[in-house]
Design a protein around this nucleic acid. Sequence first.
DNA 1: GGCGCATAGTTAGGAGGCTAACTAAAAGCG
DNA 2: CGCTTTTAGTTAGCCTCCTAACTATGCGCC
Lengths: 192, 192
Amino acid sequence: MPLLLLKDLPRYECLLEAAKSFPDLDPSATEVFLNLLRTGDEVFRVADQNLAQHNISQGRFTVMMLLLDKIENCPQPRTPAELADMAGVARATMTGLIDTLERDALVKRAPDPVDRRMMSICLTAKGEALMHTILPAHFQIMAKLMAPLSEAERKTLVRLLTKVLQCAGELAVPGGASPAGPAVAIKAPAAH
Amino acid sequence: MPLLLLKDLPRYECLLEAAKSFPDLDPSATEVFLNLLRTGDEVFRVADQNLAQHNISQGRFTVMMLLLDKIENCPQPRTPAELADMAGVARATMTGLIDTLERDALVKRAPDPVDRRMMSICLTAKGEALMHTILPAHFQIMAKLMAPLSEAERKTLVRLLTKVLQCAGELAVPGGASPAGPAVAIKAPAAH
DNA sequence: GGCGCATAGTTAGGAGGCTAACTAAAAGCG
DNA sequence: CGCTTTTAGTTAGCCTCCTAACTATGCGCC
């Protein structure tokens, strides 16, 4: 539950009024902007409530998801740097996440035998078991959240969101463009 | 920049594959879910980058926005409790926000003369000036972010998001329903 | 009038974000 | 070979979010 946003979104007429004072204010753009952030926040909250029951934050969940994917797909280790890049957080943040996950015996650090600067992170049996406990409910929640939308509406929503996402990507700090590696996470588990 | 999410969203085929292992996984629902959170996060980031240049976080911005609204509309004071409710954060969080805002001379605390438990928070001249410096760029960013969407697409997007938001509201902790007070913030400034 | 409860705000402690600075190891290069 | 640069990870310090506990004030009610 991280974000801080207006609990009650302003009515559209208020935006129209406000636009009189601020010529730069685009009422319909503002409306979409606020709704997007508000809805994202609320959806995040709902998903988080489930995870929190198992003392798992969204950050911890993402890390464990990436490691679970590793177990079920590829034997090569994950380093903290790799995890940080995939999750989109700073390396220092990943260090902290791994610290608490390791404290709770959900993941393990092991030094890389070849390059002694590197570490290998992997799920413990406990961590893997926890994921298999949590995931079904997590998937059900996502399904419930989107239940009011028809398949056609879902496609439309994704299409519109993608437009905005692309635009946001271009608007973000001009220097920080990543050439987009292969898609990660929830990658087709083979066994199981 | 608070949220932690997958930087690269999984491809749809991967979700289909994963669904074979997890019967609860609804691929299209998951796709919308991930896109929604990812887009919300990215849009948030872009808006935050602008505010951060003035050393203003989203939380601080929301508080100052609520106080600015007060100045331009109604003379009655805002208490920390009121601000916390409107912003949707815990009161302790609001105390912290006001602490740092007051330290930076952007807002002022004043004791309520009638009820000595209460405080009145208001913007300083410096805080108000800062807001009028920041807002035009902020509005422009929202407009740019939504530029790729036509008016019709914006309406559709808001409609779909609202459906999800309602659903999420119903799915959230059963006990925590707020009867939705009047819309707040960016409420039609009269002068200016 | 005073006891107990409700309310406003703060304090304390924890988690997870960030940047910047640091250590250690590897790699590049004259 | 040895010096510099790059890279991996951690550490330190800050901010914002949370819950739980605490203080002080106001209010209801006998």
